[in-house]
Design a protein around this nucleic acid. Structure first.
Lengths: 158, 158
DNA sequence: TTTTAAAATGAAACAAACTTGCACAAATCA
DNA sequence: TGATTTGTGCAAGTTTGTTTCATTTTAAAA
């Protein structure tokens, strides 16, 4: 399947900020007809460039949610244990994001819970019950300064 | 303005995963007509419960992107300096997310760059040039195990 | 350079989704 | 009980998304 061209990148830049923009609207912006825009979007969805389309909710409106950043250290000796741990994190709804990283910690987790009791229960389920995990450090989030999943799209300046 | 009811929560649960679901489709799922669904969605947008609607892109398809988790320590003495720093982080496109947290580090940043040269330049701009910042630790991401912005929506089981 | 085939485009027709107006039903409150 | 507010479904109207098809562009081959 083909690569992306500058027009595709322009479309991605728009959709990444607002995927409710109409095809005609996008077309006018980048100088293309609505059907042309639509075909490119369909193709990028099939390719997997566009993974999903979601509504972003405001935590403030969903009760008192607590965001916690967790640094997890584990014995990275056993590959299988790491894989299994990844899967466990993936499947846990309260784990919003999970990064496998270099450095002191092996995992960085962004977790969202309703209260500390829920978090305590989760730490048992995720960390204490996992023999591979040596240590974890929790940082309570006081302010979500910036939130998003925007990626830098290659320059589309011809 | 009114609070949210179980039907609203059900709508949010759906849109949070796929905001391209049609009103009719949502209506069938939760037992409501399309217009009813539409009015609820409009209201939740106005309320700010739904902050934005975005397409999520796959980093794999956008060149070799590098994700870095950064822990930043700063003198939190001066409130004004913290505020200014927050604003700086917000405005930097490569900063995908920024959390102001308790614990050793004061900020946790999720950054995405095209290469290490770009990152190095950014560290100067963001950290070395900021007199309030004492230390920062970078962890290179080897695997994005889980990515998303989903929030736990209050149980809608009557 | 010319020729040819593949790919992408725009206009128009079409289908589907969203939006609005309106009458009705349920819940709230006096 | 009666009045008001709120929310609903239906139907009509409007805007979007989708498909078709002839044409243009692109790129490769001759």
């Amino acid at each position: 399947m083909e690569a992306l061209d500058p027009l595709d990148y322009k479309i991605l830049e728009i959709l990444q900020v607002n995927n409710m923009a109409s095809q005609r609207e996008i077309g006018n912006t980048i100088g293309l007809s609505a059907p042309a825009v639509q075909r490119r979007i369909v193709r990028m969805r099939e390719m997997g460039v566009i993974k999903k389309d979601i509504a972003v909710l405001d935590p403030e409106h969903l009760g008192q949610l607590i965001t916690i950043v967790v640094q997890v250290e584990m014995e990275t000796d056993k590959v299988e244990l790491v894989t299994k741990t990844k899967r466990k994190f993936e499947q846990t709804p309260q784990v919003q994001q999970c990064y496998y990283v270099t450095g002191e910690a092996d995992f960085i987790l962004i977790m969202v819970v309703h209260n500390m009791k829920e978090y305590e229960t989760l730490t048992h389920e995720l960390f204490f019950n996992n023999p591979g995990i040596q240590r974890f450090k929790s940082s309570i989030c006081m302010d979500i300064v910036k939130s998003g999943l925007s990626l830098p799209v290659p320059k589309s300046d011809k």
